[in-house]
Design a protein around this nucleic acid. Sequence first.
DNA 1: GCCAATAATCATCAACTGATGAATAAATCC
DNA 2: GGATTTATTCATCAGTTGATGATTATTGGC
Lengths: 235, 235
Amino acid sequence: MSTKRRKVRRGRPLKTDAAPDMRERILDAAEDHFSRHGFWGVTVREVAQEAKVDTALLHYYFNTKRGLFDAVFERRAEIINEERIESIDAYVKSAGSAITVEGVIDAFLQPILQRAATGDQRWHNYFALIAQVNNTPAWGGETMGRTFDNVIHHLIDALRKALPDVSEEELYWSYHFLSGALTLTLSQTGRIDRLSEGLCKSSDFEAIGRRMAPFIASGFERLCKPQAAKRKKAT
Amino acid sequence: MSTKRRKVRRGRPLKTDAAPDMRERILDAAEDHFSRHGFWGVTVREVAQEAKVDTALLHYYFNTKRGLFDAVFERRAEIINEERIESIDAYVKSAGSAITVEGVIDAFLQPILQRAATGDQRWHNYFALIAQVNNTPAWGGETMGRTFDNVIHHLIDALRKALPDVSEEELYWSYHFLSGALTLTLSQTGRIDRLSEGLCKSSDFEAIGRRMAPFIASGFERLCKPQAAKRKKAT
DNA sequence: GCCAATAATCATCAACTGATGAATAAATCC
DNA sequence: GGATTTATTCATCAGTTGATGATTATTGGC
């Protein structure tokens, strides 16, 4: 079992090898590990081992461990960001003056929830990674902002159309609550499974897809529509 | 600057030293570091250095690094859990048959938000730690459940009183969204500061305290009160 | 067909990591 | 007041860590 000295080719690989692009293979392996244990919980050796390459190759492509992490984080961000902007725009256009908060939020959520629902492990890992970064005090805010604020401003612009004369502060705080609810969902820790004794499942994105937009939209409307009369102070 | 060989006492300390309990000092230092960088982002040496003790002492008290982490996590959990249960019970009792969802949720949130609002850095760190654990896929669900499920069942029992004939599933999913919104708030990453260009501040717990219960309660009511007529499918 | 650029492994580094057994000194027990 | 227990630092270990310069083999440009 010990040193089975597998003969490993050195030097540039033959073109005919048609090995799945090493760079992508490293990113997949890194995504898998980072998503489960975070930046510090992973060693470059673990990643290299899973990708079946030498650790030096991973420095060749990404220079540092942090460079590798950032590359993982950005790879799928571009895809999902584009999808979300298209989804919001399509809804706003189709709804016209009948635009609703719930419609906008649903349009924003669906691209993510649908990708999560396919059961593709790699997207699943990626979303879990976002969840961790979003809750990392030291550098999470900066990284999330740099990567996603564009899309979020797009979302907020659309929400303004459904909420005339809305206060900016209420809008941002409402998004904040949405962000927290969404990222916990994406992190799939299995806590709700345990709490509900199996009644609800972290992996049941169909169930989440049905409930999340109504829940969140209702909160937005409560906070953003200044119907002061409705407020009742408890006790 | 190099080796200023500070003469350090060896052996058991004099009783008259009245040094602040070393065990607590280690826990404080560990809390500070773990909350910022997570379990793997911290070395026992860093903690020992901040607590100004030898690394061996920290193994003396907590055996392993994980033991230290668990001790940090549990120390304040007991305090805050008790406060939350008392707060919920007090509200349920005082409200009587006028019990509302918003009232219950507010009672659940206030102990946390008030402690966060005092600006006590140590509670602030602890809450950030909870946020990270809640979003850790590998072991977050298990740890959160073990530590907090008791209180959460207490919360859910109270909510049932305000929501007769409620579906269990809707109740658990609603709590799930609440949990995500709360923990992101507690992680204080500064993202909303950046997103809103300074209009909203992560550290403004007074602002959060005013908005969170209405937002979340509204979501609960939308999901848990089966007023099917109100539902409108947006395109 | 030569030569620079590219893509990979190998061998190794200095620094760091969690942990532990031994030494030391005060407190407490009897 | 001697022996045991408790609380602390010291010295050190074996294993791991991120990183890099040297080496090797293939591709692509001219």
